[in-house]
């Protein structure tokens, strides 16, 4: 539970940290390379994909691996490999967008709460408590079910789900930081609160937040897959990993590969992000081993 009370202002630059990470932590470097490969594969999907991900071939449905379809075909005879590549685009986009949004909003709220204190703090943190009081997946499920399943609402749902975690993580060190000399000095110089929060406090908590972001991005991608699996994903024919798993689930006995390949794609993305997050955590503060 010794999460973030130890702030270390004499931190190395990010570049140095990364180098250190690469040297010391082979697993994380591996994770990073894996993640980059996945991202590149997603970006260049149109160049790599052997088939149009939307092209149906009803007569060739639910086929296992073959030279023509390297990971088989789905219920509509579409190429699973091509769909995974395109699906990664959407899944990554949703996962990363919502994580970044949650990070920015959550940190802003956390810093404001911590810096201002008093009733502002109470109101913000109470709201965060309310959000945290629902089981993690249920919050997202509820929001998407109510607002409708589309890209924007799914991003919104995931953002709302993980936002309070960032707010909490940003708040604690802010309280500690605002008593520090350099913040006092800035205040004495007549800097506005906004400027102090943005320029003096935010940069000092960036490390912890980034670690958290990489881990929660992994979770965000899983939430997207879970929501799609329950039937609350982006509308077809757009492929996303969760929808592909759901579509194949009906054939889990006779054609398990339809679900399992995209399932492993989710696993790889999440694993790579977790590896990176782990390494970053070690690099930024060896004491934060969870």
């Amino acid at each position: 539970m010794t999460t973030v009370d130890t702030i270390n202002p004499e931190k190395r630059s990010t570049g140095e940290q990364l180098l250190r990470l690469a040297r010391k932590n082979k697993l994380s470097t591996f994770g990073l390379i894996m993640f980059l490969v996945i991202v590149l594969a997603a970006i260049f999907a149109p160049l790599i994909a052997p088939h149009d991900p939307l092209e149906q071939n009803i007569l060739a449905r639910l086929q296992d691996r073959s030279p023509e379809y390297i990971l088989g075909t789905d219920t509509f005879g579409r190429d699973t490999f091509s769909r995974i590549l395109y699906g990664l685009r959407i899944s990554l986009l949703i996962g990363l967008t919502s994580t970044v949004l949650a990070m920015i909003l959550g940190c802003a709220l956390g810093i404001i709460a911590g810096y201002r204190g008093g009733w502002i703090d109470s109101v913000i943190m109470r709201c965060m408590d309310m959000l945290l009081a629902f089981p993690t997946l249920i919050t997202g499920l509820f929001i998407v079910a109510v607002l409708g399943a589309n890209f924007v609402n799914i991003v919104l749902a995931i953002t709302v789900t993980i936002l309070p975690k960032f707010a909490r993580v940003a708040r604690a060190p802010t309280i500690a930081l605002k008593e520090r000399e350099f913040v006092e000095a800035a205040r004495a110089l007549g800097f506005s609160d906004l400027r102090i929060m943005a320029l003096h406090i935010a940069p000092n908590i960036v490390g912890e937040v980034v670690v958290l972001a990489s881990l929660w991005a992994a979770y965000a991608i899983r939430i997207e897959a879970y929501l799609s699996f329950i039937g609350l994903g982006v509308a077809p024919p757009t492929p996303t990993l969760g929808t592909m798993i759901r579509d194949g689930f009906e054939h889990i006995l006779d054609a398990p590969f339809v679900s399992i390949y995209p399932g492993f794609a989710v696993l790889l993305v999440v694993l790579s992000l977790n590896l990176v997050g782990d390494g970053l955590r070690d690099a930024i503060d060896p004491k934060l081993r969870d």
Binding site: L54, E55, Q56, I58, F76, G148, N150, A235, P236, P237
Partner: peptide
């Protein structure tokens, strides 16, 4: 979804809600 793919071939683009 099969109909959607068929219609897209003649230029009718079905958007699902």
């Amino acid at each position: 979804q099969v109909i959607q793919a068929q219609l897209s071939k003649v230029g009718m683009n079905i958007k699902f809600d």
